[in-house]
Every structure is written in structure tokens, then in C-alpha cells.
Amino acid sequence: MNLYFQQTYQRSFGTFPLTGDTLASAVAEAAKVGYRAFDTAQMYNNETEVGAAIAALGLPRDEICITTKVHPDNFTDALFLASVEGSLKKLGLDRVDALLLHWPAYDGDNTVSLRLLQKAKRQGLADHIGISNYTSTMMREAASLLDEPIITNQVEFHPLLDQSILLKAATETGIPLASYCSVARGEVFKYPLFAEIGASYGKSAAQVVLRWILQKGVPINTMSTKPDNIRANFDVMDFTLSSIDMDRIDAMRATGYRCVDKAKVPTAPEWD
């Protein structure tokens, strides 16, 4: 993984569920404050608009990192590569920087989709490949199956959910985690601790949460349509939480709050 990609990927701008002018203005504002990594997916139905918004920025291609994710409906020999080529056409790109499997296969057997993912990289459709919403067991299976490096497992990650099993698997497999639902879709703001800690650093509750994630060694993926929040979410590299404050936040993981469960995504795996 090149250094620019690695550094840029630490703070990625998510585009779900944005569309139309709202998406275009949010991407423009994100780029203005410094974001250079942008995340989309086939499932979001906004790849065309993301591509147009990024093209409108006028930035050199090698300064932009684009991630998209393949829908499980396309995890077959007949559909996979064609769907990736379709995503590239919508995005207006000849390759993406990172191509992920959005979810495990419906039947629980990820062998076919993982091998097709590797094939897509070897055909030059993606510079890097990764996975999303994989359990620790699935991470180990993926690491043993593929020859190409797996750059990430993008998962729900925030202080209200204990993902220590996945963090351990990340260390064992060499597959780093990346976060989505980084502020638990606003749930973290119900807990005064984050604002209390933030006050001592001159930072907001959200910035404390995002900084905690980064100090866990996990890149953050955030989305907002409000310019002030977009800037604040990016502005989390100029302070460091103390070990005492990290421990206080660690204790919040016992809350056990999960944004994405089987009630919302019936095909989700049995989480660790």
C-alpha cells in the first residue's frame, strides 16, 4: 500500500445515503476541508453522482482515493466482474483505489466472491481489495484463501460496541479494520462522557469519539451534509486522548449498542 493512500485513507468521507445536489455539495465541502478519500457502493445507488461530484473537483486522479463495494447479488462468475466494470463506468474511472465485498455471501461461503475480488484486482480494476462486515472467522478464512493483501475489513466501530474480537483478528491476520457508523448514528451523543472529555481538549463529543477510534488503529469513515460538521469530523489529528480518557471511553463498550443488526439487514452474519 503506498504511503499516500495509507495516510489519506485514515479519514474517508462516506456518501450513504446522499444523492443529487445534496451529495454534490457535501463532496465539494469535504474536499475543501481536506478529504481526499471518498466511499461509495453499488448498494448506495449513487456511484454515478459520486463520480460526477469528484470529477467536478478538478483534482488530479492520484490525489483522490475512491472506494466502492460489490453488492452480494453480484457474487457470481457471471455477474461479478461485469458489475465492477459497471461501477467504474458510473464513477468515470478506469480503476478504483479500493474494491470491497460489501457483505459476506448470502450462503456463508465466501470462497467464490473472494476469488473473484482477487481476479478483479489482477485485471487492473482496483489497486487494492478489501472486505466489509466480515466476522473474525471470515477474516481468517479470507487471509488464508487469498494471495493478494486485504487492506481492510470495514465494520461498524464506535465506543458503544465492543469489537475487541475483531481487533484481535486484525492483528492476527494483518487485515486492518476501518469504521463505519463511527458516531453510532448519533447514539453517542446521548452519553455526557464524550462531551465532558471533549471540553478538556477544546473538542466536541464527536471529535472525541473519532479520535478514540483512530487511537485504536482504525481509520474513520464519516458523513455529514453540514459544513461545520464536515470540517469538525476532519479536524481530529491535532490532539491525543490520554490513556486515562481512553480507558474511560473503553468502558462504554459494555453498552453493547449495534446500529446494523439482523433486524435492519436480515442477511447479516452472526456477529462476534
Rank of each mutant, 00 (worst) to 15 (best):
T15V: 12
R122G: 10
T255Y: 06
E172W: 06
T222L: 01
E85P: 12
A55Q: 14
W271A: 03
G256S: 04
R253M: 14
Y4A: 13
T111P: 00
A120K: 12
A24R: 13
E270A: 10
L57H: 10
V84S: 12
I197K: 08
A120F: 06
R140L: 12
S242H: 12
P60R: 14
L116H: 04
S200C: 01
G14P: 07
E47F: 11
D162W: 12
D162N: 15
S242E: 09
T40I: 09
G92D: 08
T19D: 11
I54C: 00
G58D: 13
W271H: 08
E63G: 03
L57K: 08
N2Q: 08
T76A: 13
E172D: 15
T152G: 03
L23S: 06
C65V: 14
M223K: 15
G124A: 13
V50S: 07
A24Q: 10
G14V: 06
S25R: 15
L101W: 01
S204V: 11
L99Q: 09
M138S: 00
A31I: 07
T76G: 06
V188D: 11
D247R: 11
K90P: 06
T255N: 01
M246F: 04
Q215F: 05
P227I: 12
S83A: 15
F80L: 10
L59Y: 02
F80M: 09
W271I: 00
T267R: 04
Y180K: 03
G130P: 07
Q10T: 10
A30F: 03
H128D: 10
K226N: 14
T67C: 12
R11P: 01
L81R: 06
L18K: 14
R248E: 07
L99T: 01
I129R: 11
D77H: 15
W271Q: 02
G34E: 01
L23V: 10
F75M: 04
K69F: 09
L125M: 15
D228C: 14
L116P: 03
G14E: 04
D147W: 04
G92S: 09
S113G: 00
A31D: 04
M138F: 00
V70M: 06
G174Y: 08
K69D: 09
H128G: 06
N221S: 10
A120D: 11
D97Q: 15
R11S: 14
F13G: 11
R211D: 01
T111C: 00
S87W: 09
L146P: 07
A184Q: 08
L210F: 04
D228A: 15
F13R: 13
K262G: 12
D162A: 08
M246D: 05
N233Q: 10
S113Y: 00
L116T: 02
N74E: 00
F38E: 05
D94P: 05
M252L: 10
T173I: 05
K190A: 15
L100I: 06
A56L: 07
A105P: 00
M1W: 05
L193G: 02
V260G: 01
I230N: 09
